[in-house]
Amino acid sequence: MADPAFSRAGPGRRLRPELFVGQADASPQAAADWSRRRILLTDLRAVRGRAYPRITGLFREKSWLFFEILLPFLTTSAFVFVYRALQAPPEYIGFVVLGGAMTAFWLNVVWMMAAQLYWEKDQGNLELYFAAPMNLMSVLLGMALGGMVMSSTRAVAVLVVASLLYGVSFEVDQWLLLLAVFGLTLAALYGLGMILASLFLMWGREAWHTTQLMVEPVYFVSGLNFPVARLGFIGALAVATIPLAVGLDAMRQLAFAGSQVSLLPPLAEAGILVAMTVLFTLAARWSLRTLERRARIEGRLTMRWQ
């Protein structure tokens, strides 16, 4: 006997047709034909949409204030005291403080961008992202901008409190260049983060472990606590390839004018950052597309735990 629950007659809830925009499109072909303006607006709104949960989460669960602000400040302090134990010149304290501040952005790239698509796949969100019409770079940018709220807070806290507590004095001659270098460093960092995100999507569980490779080893070659020029060839290589290294070196020269050994003048390093930003952004665009294609072929977009 037919179950009346399955009757096609009389659905229990009536949906009003006016709920649906897009009815102005006479056909699916018209609905699929988007102007460049609409594509751009969609991508920008997707950035906003993806940043939203990250920023909202900060206000709903506040443990990050302790773990992301206070404790990292203590970590930076540890390296300050290493230099104090060695009776190092005061400018080295400034190096450590500046390095500690920039760590926040690097960790944002590593944890909140590079490994993120892998985690999104685990949670089942990745499929929905790929099935939606926006560019995946928008999603990654949204994640980065959302995470930047936390990173910026951390960086400012470390910079201000540590400078006051440990008597760091900055001598800035070229403020505009310093701000430009900072902005370019972030742009290059986030471009690199997008490349890593696409690589990690393909590498699967290896991605989780590879983020670990991005912490202490990168701190070392980037000269987080010392001038990278001290590393000689390794330092030169780092300046050429790692945004954190070249950005930090330039910022140190500009924040502590007339100071220490550096590989290149700040303007040259700013030029390297511009090139990195362009290169990484283009490479990210290519790698995300290429790897999406490969992931679709191999079925990696939808297979978890691999």
Binding site: A46, G49, R50, Y52, P53, T56, R60, N125, A132
Partner: peptide, 21 residues
């Protein structure tokens, strides 16, 4: 089980509305 547990139903859906422009 997709989505972000920390968001409300309304926010979750709005986030996706942004992905559709």
């Amino acid at each position: 089980q997709s989505g972000y547990g920390i968001l409300t139903v309304r926010e979750q859906l709005w986030m996706f509305s942004q992905f559709y422009g």
